[in-house]
Design a protein around this nucleic acid. Structure first.
Lengths: 132, 132
DNA sequence: ATGGGGCTTCCAGCCGTTGGAAGGTCAAGG
DNA sequence: CCTTGACCTTCCAACGGCTGGAAGCCCCAT
């Protein structure tokens, strides 16, 4: 039962849904799966592991392109860990930037919301700010 | 020179580029602009103010649909500030959620990157985590 | 009249999914 | 053997919020 899974089985085993597996294949993130005589895709444990790797990397916010590199490094036994770390640090930088951006929005909005009495009257510092 | 601007002038005056102004019109975020005899869009100060409002709201991360509501409330003199505040608070909640999500990614990655020596050796806790 | 800049429309792509339609395949049960 | 229903296949479209390009018209200065 381990080898020769259908895409549905691979989806359950990896946590990546079938539709997304096909999509990942279509964009070249994962190699083309083998096929049965009738055209069904066939997966084995190794491919499920790749899918799990991809899913975990997505959970950490890596983009597809970077995941491709990570999968490559993962499968390259002669890789340098420095290369992997470099990619991770770069991603951390981008996350920090995004976080800072969102926090700035939140902080501004928080101030405006605090200043807004939020009652039935039309006077509103939030709209005043937006209109400025 | 104040009224009867072309889209390019309105873009400069509002900070929203011409392409985007047309897009906003196409999705109904802003009403259809008037036209000259030859088909050029024409803008006046009031419309530029709406564009500025939209731009500021986008800067604060509001989505288009919500901005539509905000513009409506802004132009409604009998609005309740509570309604505006409600929208702002809801948006703050979503920002908080997104921030927390990104922070979780960053924290995990930070731990992994710290544990990775990042040298020429292949051993790598980052890949180990992704493969788990 | 010619050039160049701005305007017009429409179409396509970005990212990572998700949904749906239309049709083929497979195993189980009547 | 045939039907049912759950699976699989492909392709096409939409989400949000833009951004770019192509093809063609308009307007002003030289």
């Amino acid at each position: 039962m381990k080898d020769g899974m259908t895409i549905g089985d691979a989806a359950k085993a990896s946590g990546v849904n079938a539709k997304l597996i096909r999509y990942y294949e279509s964009i070249g993130l994962i190699p083309e799966a083998g096929r049965t005589a009738s055209g069904y895709r066939v997966y084995d444990d190794r491919e499920v592991n790749v899918l799990r790797f991809v899913k975990r990397a997505r959970t950490l916010g890596f983009g597809i392109e970077r995941i491709q590199k990570l999968v490559g490094l993962w499968q390259d036994r002669s890789r340098c860990s420095s290369e992997v770390k470099r990619i991770a640090l770069q991603h951390i930088d981008e996350l920090e930037a995004k976080i800072a951006e969102l926090q700035a929005m939140r902080d501004t909005l928080h101030e405006l919301a605090d200043a807004c009495h939020g009652d039935e009257r039309p006077d509103c510092p939030i709209l005043k700010d937006l209109a400025s």
